[in-house]
Structure formats: structure tokens, C-alpha cells
């Protein structure tokens, strides 16, 4: 490997990508790379929201401290992220790079577009976490098995280095579970071959533009003030992994779901039935848990 190998992780708050990127840095150092970096992306988003983390790995000390824009590898630990924004996910990914995905459905794979020469690897990280009980506060720590998949795909770090990194990072009683997850992932990761038309020119690296309506400092007032609107952080419906669905047959229109919704994402329709605003519902499941008639079920959100 020449120069610096850069990695971008995509996940949701609570899935462990920041932790995993630290473990990868330790493992790479164990492997003999003198220059390693793990960079968390610090944002306003919370549990469930899309977040990123980054790594740099090099045989020489790393003096760069800016963000990663053109990664050699992209790891997507939550497949719903890829299906929502594949162009965002692969932005800046270099030619001949690596895309490492958690359990992408075949329909996701068939619509995938990657830069030319890229290798795509897939592993079922969700099942591995469920099987091993690798969960914290109800969320699967998907990023841990993805370390195994990354090792398999890139051959940059060995299982042994990852194992040592895990040992130095976690308390003794949780080491085994994490190591097992990495091992299982390593052995079950497979390479996927896409159709020729799925390979394109790379999407150039870009700095994110979050506020398109402001172009220049002359557009700014002296005092920064914000105006009320739905979606002050965006369409938070994309944080959701499970969606609440109301069964109108069972619903008694008691409106407990509306009352208890922390997001104010449940409206009441003209017939008095609750109506979930899927643009913004984060899928916390409070309504499902509070419905006295069990009229709300939480279904996997395929989007």
C-alpha cells in the first residue's frame, strides 16, 4: 500500500461506528502501520440519525488533520442508509476502492452504482449481532462485525490485530462477544459482482452544503436567528428502522398514541383516527408500547 488509505463509515447513532473506527485504528497500529487516525464526525444528530466516522491508515506518520473527502473504502453498517442515499454514501469513493455493506438486499445491490474498479463486499452483520446478542440499549452494534468484513475485503488488518484491539478496548466480559462477531463476519463476508453498467466514474468529493438558501455572507443578518419549521434537522423519518402501523380495526381513537408521541409526529384525521407522519416519525416505538388496544405494530421499515 502506498500513501494513506482512507476509510469512511456510515451508520446511525448508537450502532457503534465511532467505537469501531477507534478499534480499527488500534488494530492497524498493531498490524504495523505507524500512522493511524480515527476521526468521529461531531454533529447535532442523536441516536438513530445518520452519522459518519473516518479512518486514515499509513506506513508513515499522518500529518493531515482535515476531514476525509476521498476515501479508499466506504463501510455502510446500516443498509437503509445505502438505499436512501447511495450517491451520498459513495461520494468521493476512489476508483478501485472498496465498498463494504451490511446485508444488502438483492434489490439494493441491483440498483447500486459504484466507481469503476470498485470491489463490493457484503456481510449479514444484523443477523450476527442478533445471534450473539451484541446489542446496547436495544440497538445492534452493527459496526463491530463490519470490522471483520473490512478485514476480509481489504486485507489491511488481520483478525489477530483486531482481536488484540478489542481486548485493549473492552472490559474482559464483553471481549468474547465482540471477537466472535468479528470472526463470524470475517468468514461469512462475500464479494459481489455487479453488472458492467453499475460501474461509473467516481462521484467527485464534495463538502456538504446544508443551507442552500444562503450563498454569501451578505445574505446574513447581524444576529443569527432561526425560524420555526417542521424538519428543523431534515426528514427524520430516515432515522427509523421500524415503522409504527395503525390497525384501524382495533383502534378505539383514544389518542394515547398522539398524546405520548415525543416527536409530535402523530396527527389526528377527520374521522378521529391517528395518522402517523412518516416523514418525521423516528420510529421510537412509544406509541406501539402505549396503545391500550395493541392496535399499533412495529414493522421493519423497508423504505
Amino acid at each position: 500500500m502506498n500513501g494513506i488509505f482512507e476509510v469512511r463509515w456510515h451508520g446511525r447513532g448508537g450502532q457503534g461506528i465511532v467505537t469501531a473506527s477507534k478499534i480499527l485504528a488500534i488494530a492497524a497500529f498493531n498490524e504495523g502501520f505507524v500512522g493511524v487516525q480515527s476521526i468521529p464526525w461531531i454533529g447535532a444528530e442523536r441516536r438513530g440519525a445518520q452519522i459518519e466516522a473516518y479512518n486514515r491508515i499509513s506506513y508513515a506518520p499522518i500529518l493531515l488533520h482535515s476531514q476525509v473527502y476521498a476515501p479508499n473504502a466506504v463501510i455502510v453498517v446500516d443498509q437503509s442508509i445505502l438505499s436512501e442515499n447511495s450517491s451520498t454514501t459513495i461520494r468521493g469513493l476512489k476508483k478501485n476502492g472498496f465498498l463494504v455493506l451490511n446485508a444488502a438486499h438483492s434489490n439494493v445491490l441491483s440498483s447500486l452504482r459504484v466507481p469503476e474498479g470498485c470491489s463490493v463486499y457484503v456481510v449479514d452483520a444484523t443477523s450476527i449481532c442478533l445471534e450473539l446478542g451484541l446489542q446496547v440499549a436495544g440497538l445492534e452494534i452493527l459496526a463491530i462485525p463490519m470490522l471483520g468484513a473490512f478485514a476480509k475485503a481489504t486485507d489491511l488488518v488481520s483478525i489477530k490485530s483486531l482481536e488484540n484491539a478489542i481486548k485493549s478496548f473492552f472490559e474482559a466480559d464483553s471481549v468474547k462477544k465482540n471477537v466472535d462477531a468479528i470472526l463470524k463476519a470475517y468468514w461469512s463476508t462475500r464479494k459481489v459482482h455487479l453488472k458492467p453498467e453499475q460501474y461509473l466514474s467516481p462521484i467527485p468529493p464534495s463538502k456538504p452544503v446544508r443551507i442552500p438558501e444562503i450563498h454569501h455572507w451578505t445574505d446574513l443578518p447581524p444576529v443569527p436567528t432561526s425560524t420555526p419549521s417542521k424538519g428543523s434537522i431534515g426528514k427524520t423519518g430516515d432515522w427509523r428502522t421500524h415503522k409504527p402501523v395503525v390497525d384501524r380495526e382495533k383502534c378505539s381513537k383514544c389518542l394515547f398514541c398522539w398524546m405520548y408521541c415525543p416527536e409530535a409526529a402523530i396527527n389526528v384525521d377527520s374521522d378521529g383516527f391517528p395518522e402517523i407522519d412518516y416523514d418525521y416519525c423516528k420510529g421510537c416505538g412509544v406509541c406501539f408500547n402505549e396503545c391500550p388496544r395493541e392496535a399499533i405494530s412495529m414493522l421493519v421499515d423497508e423504505k
Binding site: 447535532a44 455572507w217 444576529v223 443569527p224 432561526s226
Partner: peptide, 12 residues
């Protein structure tokens, strides 16, 4: 209005 809202490094 809200005053004081967080701005990201890439914002203003």
C-alpha cells in the same frame, strides 16, 4: 424565532 441554534463547521 429561536436564537442561538447550533451551527455546524460548514455553516455560517
Amino acid at each position: 424565532i429561536t436564537h442561538g441554534n447550533l451551527q455546524m463547521p460548514e455553516d455560517w
